[in-house]
Design a protein around this nucleic acid. Structure first.
Length: 514
RNA sequence: GCGAAAGUAGCUCAAUUGGUAGAGCUCCAGCCUUCCAAGCUGGAGGUUGCGGGUUCGAGACCCGUCUUUCGCUCCA
């Protein structure tokens, strides 16, 4: 594997995902949809197991954290309050020569500002010439100034109409008509104006108009903030407490790439921890450590993780860091831990007019809690687990095998049951073992091809144990159990299988180690 | 979005200067087989990503388009 270039290794991962039913490109028969992927029969199991482990680690073993499942659709005002509407609705235009991107509205506004400068200069000049100078009178009477002002007004009216009509061609035409040039290249070689909406939108009701536009949430966090009071009151939650949820979020990324690392539709697993103001930095540090521990518990290798503290903070945060993972294409963000202050709850208080406070019976005061957020991308986590597990292993005798060293608790199948040969009653016994185990474990059954081939097939999808029924099994009720990572076999009693699998493959063992 | 590379069976890849789309693996049905992908027989699977064009003839050449990867750019 050392000879494989990272780029090729990444390609191997992608084709392995397809070949063994982990991930398919969305709508592949129609040439696919850019940056959207589907999870296949193996991927769905692996993803579900990762999600379950997270949920148990965050919700189930913390008495002061509860889980919710908020809708993807939210009241449009939510996104005004959160700041998403204002920050990500820009019409953008590129200069083809300098390759620089500008906000079209800013270009036009700057052009208008230049004309205003000219007016101001005229006014200044006139002020020097005349005594008892009346600036307002001058502005409304001077022919040259009036000409400038008319120009500004007509640009503004035209621009406003174009924006309201969402007519981006007209916006471009304005830029061309005004002969605005790129400050860097000095040319007028512009692309079309495009609206880069971070948020996808659709509409409710049968009639589409501005008033019933509804967004697909670009982050899941707001579903928790708007439910803060509901949960706190009905759950009788006391600070500090957390609300967790997993769910889909949607971002219309300009550039969405690197397989499932950056998708337009993705799944977040996040927890908002509400704390007393002033204690947030302690909790921030606490969750930073706790979340890294969780990642380390997967056993993919401690050297693959690192913190990345944010120096530049978002407007809502007073501390932020990423837990980065070493993907095949370098260290990239896997999870974010943010101290979000009381920004979100305060914004929702303001926009909704509803108080979102906590009454602290110890100090007899009400306040808006501070929030520490942990937010991890499930798809990225999936990729990190898969990429770190996939190995091309050299065996004795020059042979090699492809093996997926998944943490057993996350593996799609916990075990596969094989009859050593397809006769002499071995298949019947093997099937009865499988039928007994399947109520508690995902178990595969295979009798096709040589047993060695079947072992390799299970290696490739990460099944940690293969149970083989041989002739001895018929006599003494024992089977061999073969370990994926070592390829070693033990002979065990059929009656003990259940206990062994529980011990080695349950999520509990990971949870207890946290 | 710009630039580069690529797209042929489920996978990995062939197909001579433009001349009948093929192999290995996989998969399926059997046979054989007492533990790590390697035996035998038969079978399935393709409008060469898609759409145009040039040509007597295009998987190959040209144009467009879609998708993917890489670099830049962007990124709460």
């Amino acid at each position: 594997m050392s000879t494989i270039k990272p780029e090729d290794f990444f390609k191997n991962i992608i084709s392995h995902c397809k070949e063994y039913g982990f991930i398919f490109q969305s709508s592949e028969i129609y040439d696919g949809l850019s940056a959207v992927y589907d999870y296949g029969q193996m991927g769905a199991e692996l993803k579900k197991n990762i999600r379950d482990y997270w949920w148990k680690a965050m919700v189930q073993i913390h008495e002061n954290i509860v889980g919710i499942d908020a809708a993807i659709f939210m009241h449009p005002t939510t996104w005004k309050a959160s700041g998403h509407v204002d920050a990500f609705n820009d019409p953008l235009i590129d200069n083809k020569d300098s390759k620089k991107r500008y906000r079209a509205d800013v270009l036009i506004e700057e052009h208008v500002a230049k004309i205003e400068d000219k007016i101001n200069k005229e006014v200044e000049k006139a002020a020097k010439r005349f005594e008892n100078f009346d600036a307002d009178m001058f502005r409304s009477t001077n022919a040259r100034v009036k000409e400038y002002q008319d120009k500004i007004d007509s640009i503004n009216i035209r621009f406003k109409m174009a924006l309201n009509a969402n007519n981006l061609d007209e916006v471009k035409q304005i830029i061309l008509d005004l002969e605005i040039v790129c400050p860097i290249s000095g040319t007028k070689n512009w692309t079309d104006v495009r609206q880069f909406n971070l948020m996808f939108n659709t509409s409710t009701g049968a009639v589409t108009d501005e008033s019933n536009i509804i967004y697909l949430r670009p982050e899941t966090a707001q579903g928790i903030f708007v439910n803060y009071l509901n949960v706190q009151k009905t759950g009788r939650m006391k600070l500090p407490f957390g609300i967790a949820q997993t769910g889909k979020a949607f971002r219309n990324e300009i550039v969405a790439r690197q397989f499932i690392f950056r998708m337009r539709e993705f799944e977040q697993m996040e927890m908002q921890f509400f704390v007393k103001p002033g204690t947030e930095m302690d909790w921030y540090e606490y969750w930073k450590k706790a979340r890294l521990n969780w990642h380390l518990s997967l056993g993919l290798g401690a050297e693959k993780y690192r913190y990345h503290d944010h120096l530049k903070l978002a407007h809502y945060a007073n501390a932020a860091c990423d837990i980065e993972h070493q993907f095949p294409f370098g260290f990239k963000e896997l999870e974010g831990i943010h101290s979000r202050t009381d920004f979100d709850l305060k914004q929702h208080q303001e926009f909704s007019g509803k108080k979102l406070q906590y009454f602290d019976s110890e100090t007899n005061e009400s306040y808006v809690p501070y929030v520490v957020e942990t937010s991890v991308g499930l798809d990225r986590l999936f990729l990190s687990v898969l990429a770190s597990s996939l190995k091309e292993e050299a065996l004795e005798g020059g042979d090699s095998r492809t093996v997926l060293n998944l943490p057993p608790a996350l593996a799609p199948y916990k075990a596969a049951v094989f009859p050593l040969v397809k006769k002499d009653g071995l298949p019947e016994l093997a099937e009865s073992i499988m039928k007994d185990l399947k109520f508690d474990f995902m178990v595969a059954y295979d009798e096709k091809d040589t047993v060695g081939k079947r072992y390799r097939r299970q290696d490739a999808i990460g099944t940690p144990f293969c149970i083989t029924v041989d002739h001895q099994s018929l006599e003494d009720k024992t089977v061999t159990i073969r370990h994926r990572d070592t390829m070693k076999q033990d002979r065990v009693a059929i009656a003990d299988l259940h206990k062994i699998l529980t011990e080695k493959t349950s999520i509990n063992s990971l949870l207890r180690a946290l």
